[in-house]
Design a protein around this nucleic acid. Sequence first.
DNA 1: ATATTGTTTGTTAACACTCACTAACAAATA
DNA 2: TATTTGTTAGTGAGTGTTAACAAACAATAT
Lengths: 194, 194
Amino acid sequence: MARLSTEERQKTIIDEAINIIHNGGYESLSIRELAGKVKISEPAIYRHFLNKEDIILGILSRIGEFDYLLEENLAHGDSAVEKLRRFIQFHFDFLQKNKEMTSVLFSEDIFKQSDILKQKLMKIIKYRKSLLTSIVDQGKAENDFKNIETTNIVTMILGFIRLTVLEWRLGGFGFNLSNKGDKIISAIIEMIGK
Amino acid sequence: MARLSTEERQKTIIDEAINIIHNGGYESLSIRELAGKVKISEPAIYRHFLNKEDIILGILSRIGEFDYLLEENLAHGDSAVEKLRRFIQFHFDFLQKNKEMTSVLFSEDIFKQSDILKQKLMKIIKYRKSLLTSIVDQGKAENDFKNIETTNIVTMILGFIRLTVLEWRLGGFGFNLSNKGDKIISAIIEMIGK
DNA sequence: ATATTGTTTGTTAACACTCACTAACAAATA
DNA sequence: TATTTGTTAGTGAGTGTTAACAAACAATAT
């Protein structure tokens, strides 16, 4: 059973954990199943993670990585409109290429057992909101967006993205999400643009 | 242990099941916990429901009842704008009075074990979408709404409501949801109104 | 170069506990 | 008396986790 370094093994474990949730939902994520997919014994899992909660924290870190890539991408945008376009398109492109992540990227409903997880989740949500909030504020300053309360615009856009992704997933990924980006972006611009 | 008719007992069981999910999440809904809260023995649960899935079907029926009340309320509306106002306000008023229902009303993420549950959920989602779709189409016909693709408007509004409720819940119901109705409604009207 | 040592990554076997659910029987109600 | 609603006791299967031990590897001493 080819020994791997803890770093490498941790990565494969998190990968498989996300895949298991993707295929069978969170309740199907057991140490037994996880060990089976990684092809090591159950106790070996505990060489690389303290406990199950620690594994879920690892999954949440993946979400953090997404947010990091997202912010990096936004920096290449100039106007608020362009940044908003990037914000939405980046979500769709990423999820089209990483379908497994649809189950965990908006996981507020799933991971809420322990306070530690709750707090980490809250941090992620707040961060993503703050990204979008600054874009919307910029758009208002540039006089491109309507003068609707920023929080409402932010909640609207995030809610729109979330539900679009959820419906995409429930429908078995039956259409190309990336391709829907343009239409949804222009719909949103029609709603909040001046 | 005061005997109850099956009808009455079923109601209390579903009530408690929803409360358990409300307080501890879906994964904390066990027959043991449920029987404890209802104050009967575990096997007694099976006098009134075939199995656990049957209990969850009972919960989904409650969601169906909500949708029925919602449609009834909409009928009192005249214009599309008024119906839309009712659609949103009814959600918020209902959830303000029935906080336990926040955990199950948008439960697409939670109940997806069996195909039966999946199908029943799909039915509920489609029905709610169809309600809103006809409102939006009416608003377009009355020339009150912008000519944005109906599906996009519907997804936007439902996504907006969903995320607003989710944030309300994650924040421990820290504000009055009913009171937020007016502001959110006028924000939406500003976005999609002509 | 080779043997020795300590650390890391793996194993098998078992732990106590919870899960949904059933068999057999008792009491309440019609 | 027959049916319905409850009980106690127990099923097999699954849960996360640990103890005890073995093999692979890296660093050091001969």
